Simulated scan of single mutants.
Amino acid sequence: MKQLGNWLDFNVKQFLEGKVVLLPAPEDIPENYVKDGYRYRIKGFILHDPNNDELNSNEPLTIKFKNKPVIPKNQVQFKAGQFELANPTGVVYGDYRNQLSLKADGFLNKSESK
Protein backbone atom coordinates (compact mmCIF):
# COMPACT_ATOMS: atom_id res chain seq x y z
CA MET A 1 0.00 0.00 0.00
CA LYS A 2 1.18 3.50 -0.74
CA GLN A 3 0.95 6.76 1.22
CA LEU A 4 0.05 5.08 4.49
CA GLY A 5 2.24 7.65 6.20
CA ASN A 6 -0.38 10.30 5.36
CA TRP A 7 -2.67 8.70 7.90
CA LEU A 8 -0.29 9.11 10.81
CA ASP A 9 -1.13 12.13 12.98
CA PHE A 10 1.87 13.83 14.54
CA ASN A 11 0.91 16.21 17.35
CA VAL A 12 3.60 18.94 17.36
CA LYS A 13 2.30 20.65 20.50
CA GLN A 14 2.35 17.40 22.45
CA PHE A 15 5.84 16.56 21.12
CA LEU A 16 7.29 19.93 22.23
CA GLU A 17 5.50 19.89 25.60
CA GLY A 18 7.94 20.08 28.49
CA LYS A 19 11.07 20.33 26.32
CA VAL A 20 13.78 22.96 26.72
CA VAL A 21 15.00 23.94 23.25
CA LEU A 22 17.74 26.12 21.81
CA LEU A 23 16.46 28.20 18.89
CA PRO A 24 19.08 30.46 17.28
CA ALA A 25 18.33 33.10 14.65
CA PRO A 26 16.53 31.96 11.50
CA GLU A 27 18.51 31.41 8.32
CA ASP A 28 17.62 31.39 4.64
CA ILE A 29 17.24 28.01 2.96
CA PRO A 30 19.36 27.82 -0.21
CA GLU A 31 17.13 28.42 -3.26
CA ASN A 32 17.72 24.95 -4.73
CA TYR A 33 16.36 23.38 -1.48
CA VAL A 34 13.20 25.50 -1.17
CA LYS A 35 10.04 23.36 -1.33
CA ASP A 36 6.43 24.52 -1.11
CA GLY A 37 7.51 28.10 -0.34
CA TYR A 38 9.33 27.30 2.94
CA ARG A 39 12.30 29.68 2.61
CA TYR A 40 13.54 29.98 6.22
CA ARG A 41 14.60 27.55 8.90
CA ILE A 42 15.74 27.50 12.47
CA LYS A 43 18.23 24.76 13.23
CA GLY A 44 18.02 24.24 16.96
CA PHE A 45 18.54 21.54 19.56
CA ILE A 46 16.52 19.84 22.26
CA LEU A 47 18.45 20.60 25.45
CA HIS A 48 16.18 18.73 27.86
CA ASP A 49 13.22 16.40 27.42
CA PRO A 50 11.57 15.38 30.70
CA ASN A 51 9.68 12.62 28.91
CA ASN A 52 12.70 10.97 27.30
CA ASP A 53 15.91 12.86 28.09
CA GLU A 54 18.13 9.84 27.46
CA LEU A 55 17.08 9.64 23.80
CA ASN A 56 16.22 13.23 22.88
CA SER A 57 18.75 15.35 24.77
CA ASN A 58 21.03 17.25 22.33
CA GLU A 59 19.07 16.03 19.31
CA PRO A 60 18.83 18.53 16.43
CA LEU A 61 15.46 20.15 15.78
CA THR A 62 14.82 22.02 12.53
CA ILE A 63 11.66 24.06 11.95
CA LYS A 64 10.86 25.50 8.50
CA PHE A 65 8.86 28.67 7.84
CA LYS A 66 7.43 30.39 4.76
CA ASN A 67 7.99 33.86 6.23
CA LYS A 68 10.97 34.91 8.31
CA PRO A 69 10.03 34.25 11.95
CA VAL A 70 10.65 36.82 14.65
CA ILE A 71 12.42 35.61 17.80
CA PRO A 72 12.80 37.93 20.80
CA LYS A 73 16.28 39.48 20.78
CA ASN A 74 18.84 38.08 23.17
CA GLN A 75 16.76 34.96 23.77
CA VAL A 76 17.73 31.66 22.21
CA GLN A 77 16.93 29.16 24.97
CA PHE A 78 13.26 28.50 25.54
CA LYS A 79 11.75 26.47 28.33
CA ALA A 80 8.47 24.62 28.05
CA GLY A 81 5.59 27.01 27.57
CA GLN A 82 7.72 30.03 26.59
CA PHE A 83 6.90 29.76 22.92
CA GLU A 84 4.22 28.28 20.73
CA LEU A 85 4.29 27.65 17.00
CA ALA A 86 1.52 29.03 14.80
CA ASN A 87 -0.21 26.29 12.77
CA PRO A 88 2.53 23.70 13.26
CA THR A 89 2.66 20.50 11.23
CA GLY A 90 4.94 17.55 11.69
CA VAL A 91 5.69 14.51 9.59
CA VAL A 92 7.67 11.46 10.63
CA TYR A 93 9.50 9.90 7.70
CA GLY A 94 12.47 7.75 6.73
CA ASP A 95 13.15 4.05 6.34
CA TYR A 96 13.11 3.61 10.10
CA ARG A 97 10.52 6.35 10.79
CA ASN A 98 13.18 8.24 12.75
CA GLN A 99 13.27 11.55 10.85
CA LEU A 100 11.06 14.53 11.70
CA SER A 101 9.98 17.43 9.50
CA LEU A 102 8.45 20.39 11.37
CA LYS A 103 6.84 23.36 9.61
CA ALA A 104 4.99 26.37 11.02
CA ASP A 105 3.63 29.75 10.01
CA GLY A 106 5.64 31.46 12.75
CA PHE A 107 5.57 31.96 16.50
CA LEU A 108 2.53 33.00 18.51
CA ASN A 109 2.82 35.70 21.13
CA LYS A 110 1.93 34.26 24.51
CA SER A 111 -1.15 36.53 24.56
CA GLU A 112 -2.33 35.03 21.24
CA SER A 113 -1.88 31.41 22.35
CA LYS A 114 -4.30 31.59 25.28
Rank of each mutant, 00 (worst) to 15 (best):
F107A: 11
N109A: 14
V20R: 13
L47E: 10
I46C: 15
Q3W: 02
K68W: 03
L55W: 00
G106P: 14
S111E: 09
K2G: 13
N6F: 01
F65R: 10
G37T: 01
Y33F: 12
S113W: 03
N52D: 15
K43G: 09
F78N: 10
V20I: 11
L100H: 03
F45W: 05
Y96K: 13
Q99Y: 04
D105E: 13
N52L: 02
I46M: 12
L16I: 04
P26T: 01
K66L: 02
S111I: 07
H48Y: 12
L16G: 08
A25S: 08
N109D: 11
A25M: 05
L8I: 11
R39T: 11
I71T: 13
I46T: 12
S57V: 03
G81S: 08
D49Y: 00
Q14I: 01
L47A: 08
E31N: 07
K19V: 04
D53L: 00
A86E: 12
I29L: 07
N11W: 00
Q75C: 03
Y33W: 04
L61P: 03
Y93E: 10
Y40R: 11
V12D: 08
G90N: 04
F65M: 09
D28I: 02
H48Q: 15
Y93Q: 10
N32R: 12
N74P: 04
D9V: 03
F15H: 11
K66I: 03
V92W: 00
N51K: 15
F65G: 13
P72L: 05
K2Q: 08
I42Q: 09
K35G: 04
I63E: 05
D28R: 04
G94Q: 03
K19G: 03
I63K: 05
Y93T: 14
E59I: 00
L61Y: 01
G106V: 00
N87A: 06
K19L: 08
K35T: 12
F10Y: 15
G5T: 06
P30R: 03
F15P: 15
N109L: 09
Q14F: 02
Q77G: 03
I46W: 02
S57K: 14
Y93C: 09
N58C: 08
N67E: 11
G37V: 04
K66P: 11
I29W: 01
N109V: 01
L108C: 08
S101L: 15
V76D: 14
A86P: 09
N51S: 11
P50L: 06
L102T: 05
E59T: 12
T62F: 00
R39S: 14
L55V: 07
F83S: 13
N52A: 11
G18T: 01
Y33I: 00
K19R: 11
K114H: 15
L102V: 13
F78V: 07
K2Y: 10
D95N: 08
P50Q: 06
P69E: 02
G44L: 03
F10D: 06
E17D: 11
H48V: 13
R41E: 14
D49F: 01
S57L: 00
I63R: 10
L4N: 13
Y40A: 06
F107R: 06
K103Q: 14
S113I: 01
F107S: 10
